[in-house]
């Protein structure tokens, strides 16, 4: 269910990278809004600014200028510790490379966002993580070390981890990029299903037009600007 209230608004977003000699503008006055419950595909050629946008929306990177508000909070100029707390509670990540902690089990990986916030693993979180693993079809793999899981299984654990703290926004960067066709289909089906049932907003960066076609909205970037949008 899509709610009319914007989850986040970015206005005139600019991001420049300066290596001392040359300056590169990756985002060049980008403005967009995302709404609660949306399933959005972020498209664009390499270098168009997709990853930089995801990093800024994920509060992992600060823009050079512009406005960025989410859930009514102005995130520009917020302290690092506040951004970390905000990220932990409101944003989930699914990376192209699953990025699980290899020395931890599937269950421990899923619980990580909650445990690091509370400073301990609670039984409530253990139950929630187990439910999420069940939801992504990996209940029988909960005690497997992450390093022993297949690529598709790792990515599904990563999806479960992204949902652990019931975030308002999940940012997925090429979530099926490293998977075979069958695993990619399962992961996409899972994201679409979770979007439909939980109402979590998903912004999925992809080069795959088929995946983009499964999303209800497409945002295309070109040279750091919004090139085209489909609703």
């Amino acid at each position: 269910m899509i709610v009319d209230t914007p989850l986040l608004i970015v206005t005139d977003l600019v991001k420049e990278f300066n290596d001392g000699e040359t300056s590169t503008t990756v985002l060049n006055g980008l403005s967009l809004s995302l709404y609660r419950g949306e399933l959005v595909a972020l498209l664009g050629p390499s270098g168009s600014g997709k990853s930089t946008l995801l990093s800024i929306l994920g509060t992992l990177m600060r823009p050079t200028s512009g406005r960025f508000e989410m859930l009514g909070f102005n995130l520009i100029g917020a302290r690092d510790v506040d951004l970390t707390e905000f990220r932990n509670q409101h944003i989930g990540f699914v990376f192209q490379a699953h990025n699980l902690l290899p020395d931890f089990t599937a269950l421990e990986n899923v619980m990580f966002p909650a445990a690091t916030r509370k400073g301990r693993e609670t039984s409530v979180d253990r139950r929630r993580a187990t439910e999420l693993l069940d939801k992504v079809g990996l209940a029988d793999r909960r005690d497997f070390p992450a390093s022993k899981l297949s690529g598709g299984q790792k990515q599904r654990v990563a999806v479960a981890r992204a949902l652990m703290n019931s975030p308002d926004l999940v940012l997925a960067d090429e979530p099926t990029g490293n998977l075979d066709r069958e695993s990619a289909r399962r992961v996409m089906d899972l994201l679409i299903d979770l979007n439909g049932t939980d109402g979590t907003t998903f912004l999925i960066s992809t080069h795959d037009e088929t995946i983009a076609g499964q999303c209800r909205r497409e945002i295309r970037l070109l040279d750091g600007r919004l090139a085209r949008e489909r609703h």
Binding site: G58, L60, V81, T84, E85, R87, N88, Q89, F93, N99, L100, L101, F112, P113, T116, R117, R161, N165
Partner: peptide, 8 residues
């Protein structure tokens, strides 16, 4: 990864 997941 930890920092991205919200570890301070």
């Amino acid at each position: 990864i930890m920092r991205a997941m919200g570890a301070t």
